[in-house]
Amino acid sequence: MTDTVIDIAGLGKRYALSHQNRPDSLKTWLRGKIRYTANGRDQSGDEEFWALRNVSLQVQRGECLALIGKNGSGKSTLLKILSRIIPPTEGRAMIRGRIASLLEVGTGFHPELTGRENVFLNAAMLGCAEKEVRRNFDAIVDFSGVERFLDTPVKHYSSGMYVRLAYAVAAHVNADILIVDEVLAVGDVEFRRKCLDHMRQFQLRHKTCVIVSHDIETIQRLATHVVWLDRGSIAETASTNRFALLDRYSGTAGNQGPHVGVV
């Protein structure tokens, strides 16, 4: 029986490289408009760039999907679309269940607020009721290990503390799908182990993860499913034979395309 929780079909994200297409002041915007009317055609946006194109994949409940690929291959873009931070240009994605996402460092903390206040605000933004947070508060603090600095504004936190607290919140909001983008790179060895343990527990409870990591070892331990992205498209996917794929990936060091250097 299949139980698809993430269903992505033909997803694409286009960016314009030209500056006129994304005016950041009225002047450039007006200038673009004037040129448009003067020449009778739109001169802006002549160069476009697809950060993601034609991506279709499915993730079943309880799976852990790892996205691999070199910088700029579209991994983070895909996670941002799934987290609804940015909209796709084409295609669609269907997601079943509540998502908690950790994108890069410091998932939406308010710098002026204390760690304690941020726990509540962040959890609420992840759709978790205050009562629920109160019940799990000790567990969150315990997990994060920043107990001493709980009443300090997070702007004074180190990047490690920031991530620990962010992960601790995301781990306790009772999400169905956890999206993690390379955040764990910041934490120390001990914390990383804690997170890995948590993610494995998470999977055992039949929850779903999507992770991006450049650390092959992390992926080997967690992923049940690996998708190799190259220049915005899926180059290869693997589930049972994922270790072979990962070996090949680390062989190319992720610096060339998937079909280069492969015998």
């Binding site: 679309i81 799934l82 609804r84 909209p87 796709p88 240009t89 084409e90 295609g91 669609r92 994605a93 269907m94 997601i95 079943r96 269940g97 509540r98 998502i99 169905d176």
Partner: peptide, 13 residues
Amino acid sequence: ATPIGEPTILIDA
């Protein structure tokens, strides 16, 4: 709403 009671989100343009 889905039969299971989980929220289903459709993301498109």
